[in-house]
Design a protein around this nucleic acid. Sequence first.
DNA 1: CCTAATCCCTCTAGCGACTGGAGGTTCAAG
DNA 2: CTTGAACCTCCAGTCGCTAGAGGGATTAGG
Lengths: 145, 145
Amino acid sequence: MSDISIGRLSRRTGVKIPTIRYYESIGMLDAPDRSAGGQRRYDASHLEQLRFIRHGRDLGFGLDDLRALQDMASRPETSCDAADRIARQQLADVERRLAGLRAVRTELKRMVAQCSHGVVDDCRVIQTLSDHGLCDGDHSPDRTP
Amino acid sequence: MSDISIGRLSRRTGVKIPTIRYYESIGMLDAPDRSAGGQRRYDASHLEQLRFIRHGRDLGFGLDDLRALQDMASRPETSCDAADRIARQQLADVERRLAGLRAVRTELKRMVAQCSHGVVDDCRVIQTLSDHGLCDGDHSPDRTP
DNA sequence: CCTAATCCCTCTAGCGACTGGAGGTTCAAG
DNA sequence: CTTGAACCTCCAGTCGCTAGAGGGATTAGG
């Protein structure tokens, strides 16, 4: 109905053009109709769908989770327990990462504060990296797998 | 001198075996001597080097940064300004991500708290994802690029 | 109607930082 | 000397994009 080009859709959602095509290629976003010349023509429903994905990504959900949530959204009479579970999981994950990042920040701050701005041999930044014993040692990895 | 096998090195540093080999392949970790049969034999200096990398990774430094820091560590009489800059940058990055994650946590909490545990059509989790207007809207993306 | 500028197409390959598996070799204890 | 654990190489896959090459489509202006 609205006949939106991919560039326009990109501007309206803040999702880059290659990313939109990528989402289509992995089945996250419905394939739109094409113009006579083969260009993608989106409508309001795609806009909505892509905003859903974008918002979910911003909140840190993985594409698999979003697929599941999208799926639920399309069946409004089913129970939302699964959605709730996914969101709670995500929240727990975010809390975990926050805790890790806070510990990391603490150590980075100490490193930076103690740097004497002299020579590498006296530099707290490099000393700390070389010897974990110099720091509290209870900062968990930030790896976000 | 110490003749450490890769498995032992892995256990001592908490770095997985394939990761150790990967580090060697990209030139992050010095290639060790080999046994007569071609197996890697590490010594104390590798242990130290790998702990340096491990600790840096735990603090969220990228491998390129760590390469630079390692390089500096090996030239103790040079100025540590560059090291300081890298660490400050990393700290700024961590602060940015903390801010993003906190915003994300806030919205996730609201989503979860308002879920009525009924049917998808009334589920705040899915409603929020569908319509960004329902939330404050100022949570920045968590993408960690 | 024609042209130029802008947009869009597919396809392939790459990023960072690993992780895992297949299929084969070596080491160390008994 | 045998056995089983540990090691080797090579390749492919993960996640979520992102970029570039080499072309075709669309659209606004003249």
